[in-house]
Amino acid sequence: MRSFLCIGLFFISSLSIGQIREKGTIELTPIIGYSASYHIHSFVFASPPVPGIQLGVYGNYFLNERWSLRSGLLYQKMGTEKIDFSILKDDYSEKTNYITLPVTINYHFGGKRNWYANNGIFMGILTSAEANYNDGNGFVDIKDTTNPIQIGISNGIGYKFKISPKFIVAIDNSNMVGLTKTNKERIGVNFYVSLNLGVVFKI
């Protein structure tokens, strides 16, 4: 039993080798993630999420060993499902796709700087939009009435595992809240949560 415990501790410690970076270091991190999206009011009234797969790449520029600037390009699916709540019912469902540009400041912490947290803003460019009014017509295109740009705030937290000197894996959570309405004719703003897996390449 002791030998298994020692092996386990050694393995965990080997994954936690330092991620301390010098000023000017650049990292590229392709990611894939699972997302859940709501409109703020549909989240409050416990409607089911709109699930999706997030794809993209982040670029990280280190200002020093603790702070970095991160941006990238992400493909995201957002939207809302109908609400079936006792005091509020809404048969409207919406699905929107965006190419999103986040810009955040990252703080790297922990003894080996394996942890990181970020806060910032994002801008999304609409690529498609459709809605289901549950009137028997299914989903219909609503791109003409959907705002082509959404702006909002972003934050998240993550952890980097150093598998080998040249192979680092990152797992992180990302959250986004829109500040602009998705549709010109409705009140909804997006609330988006994702869990992501990435591979970190030092440039």
Rank of each mutant, 00 (worst) to 15 (best):
M1R: 03
S3K: 07
F4I: 13
F4Y: 13
F4Q: 13
G8R: 10
F10V: 10
F10A: 14
I12P: 04
G18E: 12
I20C: 07
R21N: 13
T25W: 01
E27F: 04
P30Y: 01
Y34L: 07
S35Y: 05
I40H: 04
H41I: 13
F43P: 02
A46L: 05
S47T: 07
P48V: 01
V50F: 07
P51W: 05
I53Y: 07
I53M: 12
V57W: 03
N60Y: 05
L63M: 09
N64L: 03
S68N: 09
S68F: 00
S68M: 00
L73Y: 08
L74S: 04
E81C: 05
K82F: 08
K82I: 03
K82Y: 11
D84A: 01
D84C: 01
D90K: 09
D91Y: 07
Y92P: 08
S93M: 05
E94D: 06
K95Y: 10
L101M: 13
P102C: 08
P102S: 11
N106E: 11
H108K: 06
G111I: 10
R113M: 07
Y116R: 12
N118M: 11
N119S: 06
G120D: 10
I121N: 04
G124A: 13
S128W: 14
S128L: 07
N132C: 01
N132K: 00
N132T: 02
N137T: 14
G138V: 03
V140M: 11
V140T: 15
I142W: 15
K143G: 04
Q150M: 09
N155P: 02
I157R: 13
I157M: 14
K160E: 10
K162N: 11
I163W: 15
S164W: 10
S164Q: 06
K166N: 15
K166H: 15
V169W: 14
V169K: 09
S174F: 02
N175E: 09
T180R: 11
T180D: 09
T180S: 12
T182S: 09
T182W: 14
T182A: 09
V189E: 14
F191Q: 05
V193C: 00
S194W: 15
G198P: 07
V200Q: 09
F201Q: 09
I203V: 10
